[in-house]
Every structure is written in C-alpha cells, then in structure tokens.
C-alpha cells in the first residue's frame, strides 16, 4: 500500500469542499458542496484528465489540490522524489515550498497575463518571488531558456501581452508556469478558448514539456475529444462527485456510466453522414446548492429506477484503475450485448 502510494504524486481521500452560502436568520448555515467525497490517485508522470460539464466541480477540485479552496473534509497528500506533504497539517514554510512544486495554467490567456508587464517581467516574476535566482543575469538566463522551450523568441520578451495572438499568449502562460521547474501542473481548460488549429499546437507543447521536464498534469476540460488524445487516465465528474475513472483507452472503448456515454455521444462527429442522436442528454446539470437525493445523475439519466432516487451508488471497482459509480452499470452491460 505504502509503496503504491509513493507512486502517486497526489492522493486524495474523501476530499470535500464546501462554500458557505450565507445563513438564514435563525436557521442553520447553508453550504454548497462543490466537491464531495473524492478519493483519487494521480500517478506520477501521468497526463490525468478530469472531465465534466460546467458546474461539476472540476475547477474547485483542482484548486483544492493547490490548497486554494476551503477543504471541509478529507485530505490531500503530495509525494515527489524529494518531499511528502499532507495538506491538512502543512506549515506555512512547507506550503511555500509546496507551491513552488505546483503551478496552475488558466483558461483565458487574455485575462491571465498582466497587460502592464512585458513578457520578460511576466516570466521572471515567479522565480523572483520564489527567490530561485540570485542575480538579474541568472533570472534573464532562465527566462531566455524557458522562452526558447515554449517557442518564444528574444524579440517577444520585450513586448506586452496585447501584441500576441491567443495561441502565443497561452504559450507565455505555459512558460510562466514552467519556469520555476514545478513537478505538478493543474491545466484548467487551457485550450478551451483557442481555435482548433492553435489548440493542437498548445496540446503538443504541453506533451513535449512533460517528457522534457518529467511533469505530471491534471488536465481539466469539458471536451472529451481533447482528453482522448492527450491524457492517459481520465476521471469523469458530475455535480461534485466522481462517476467514473479509467485509463483513457479503456474508457473510450467501453464507457460504463450513462453520463460518460452521454458525454461521448454529444461530441459532434466530423463525418456528415454520422447522425447518431442515440444518447442525447435531456435537461441541464442541477444546481449544486440543492443537489438531488440518491444518485446525483438520476434526474437526467434515461435508465434511472427507484433505487437511484434513494441511494447514492458506491464506487465499484472493475479493475484497480477502472471505477464506476452507478447502480445499474452491470445490467446495462448485459442488456447491450
């Protein structure tokens, strides 16, 4: 157990995050459970995909791993070759060190970069703040090195972000995240705002940097087709809970949870003759402030029965790496074949 745990850069156990909603006058304090009871291992060196609709809690989960969201229950452990931290009882000094080891890449490259700083200053800021360099020359050296890796040239460093296209800006964001030599990157919808032609370029850059720097990614996206191409493992979230986790190939060859199947069939196909409307989802994701009882997905699930409305399904293990939380996945398997 311990040996295996050491291979996971991040392990969460029953992780929950709640946000206060304000309180009624005499009544109890109200909470939104943005993330509830997530137990997940992210193996070192993996490109781990996290998928779900808006409002499913993907981003909050990512932020909780960085200790940037209020964890109400459960814990997060971090292990790399050098250190191990338990985020519940981390000291201030340790937290500083921890945050050097992880970085966040945001969705909107237009909002993530300060318009008043040159690219050189944007890239230099993290290492200066973290005290990773001792002189200006050393900082410049590091900035040039990471810029070259992210295909930005020296002339770019003197410019301001407004002079760049979306794809270039996202490359600047990536360079900024990678300059401190982190071990773990949370990439939150990092290609969602980009054109398809540029998207492929940024994905390829993330992948090549992974090989070069030995990174582990948590790649958050609502687009399963992007995840299919870049991730080696996938976790599917719905209303704050994990509904299915599996290695990418297994998930796409045989999705088990009705929600995963619906997500897959919603992706438009490039083949104009393919008009499968087999499993279109009705309705929208319910508000996390008043989640339905039982299985959270039952309000939209075409296979829901009485038990789904009452009992919350437990995670079932198909194998060590493939889990699914659904009362009926076995019946659905047999009825399909």
């Amino acid at each position: 157990m311990n040996d295996q745990a050491q291979n996971n850069i991040i392990s969460t156990k029953n992780l929950s995050v709640s946000f206060p909603l304000g309180k009624t006058f005499f009544g109890p304090k109200l909470f939104v459970k943005a993330v509830s009871n997530i137990t997940l291992d992210i193996p070192r060196g993996s490109f781990f995909g996290l998928v779900g609709e808006s409002g499913s809690g993907k981003t909050t989960f990512g932020r909780a791993l960085l200790k940037a969201a209020p964890v109400s229950n459960g814990h997060v452990e971090y292990h790399d070759e050098e250190v191990s931290y338990n985020l519940n009882d981390i000291t201030k000094e340790e937290l500083k060190d921890y945050r050097k080891r992880m970085q966040l890449i945001f969705q909107d490259p237009y909002a993530a970069l300060s318009p008043r700083m040159t690219v050189r200053d944007i890239l230099a800021e993290p290492i200066e703040l973290m005290g990773l360099t001792s002189s200006r020359e050393e900082t410049d050296e590091k900035v040039r090195e990471i810029a070259a890796k992210c295909r930005l040239n020296l002339e770019h460093l003197r410019r301001f972000p407004h002079a760049f296209s979306g794809g270039q800006r996202q490359r600047i964001s990536i360079a900024r995240a990678l300059i401190s030599n982190p071990k773990f990157i949370v990439a939150d919808e990092s290609v969602a705002a980009l054109d398809v032609s540029i998207q492929a370029d940024v994905l390829n850059l993330l992948k090549s940097m992974q090989k070069e720097m030995g990174l582990t990614y948590l790649f958050i996206s609502h687009d399963l087709s992007v995840i299919a191409h870049i991730c080696d493992q996938v976790a599917v979230m719905y209303l704050g809970q994990l509904v299915e986790t599996a290695p990418t190939h297994e998930l796409f060859a045989g999705p088990k949870h009705p929600y995963t199947k619906a997500l897959l069939s919603a992706i438009p196909s490039l083949d104009p003759d393919d008009d499968s409307k087999a499993q279109r989802l009705e309705g929208e994701i319910p508000s996390p402030a008043s989640p339905p009882p039982g299985c959270k997905f039952h309000t939209r699930c075409p296979f829901a029965t009485d038990i789904c409305k009452k009992d919350e399904p437990q995670l079932d293990y198909l194998s060590v790496t493939h889990t699914v939380a659904c009362h009926h996945w076995k019946d659905l398997e047999t009825s399909n074949t």
Partner: peptide, 9 residues
C-alpha cells in the same frame, strides 16, 4: 487534421 477525433484516439 487539427481536430481531435474519437475514431482514432
């Protein structure tokens, strides 16, 4: 070619 497709991941 830049579009990720599900037929061949």
């Amino acid at each position: 070619n830049a579009l990720p497709q599900l037929d061949d991941i």
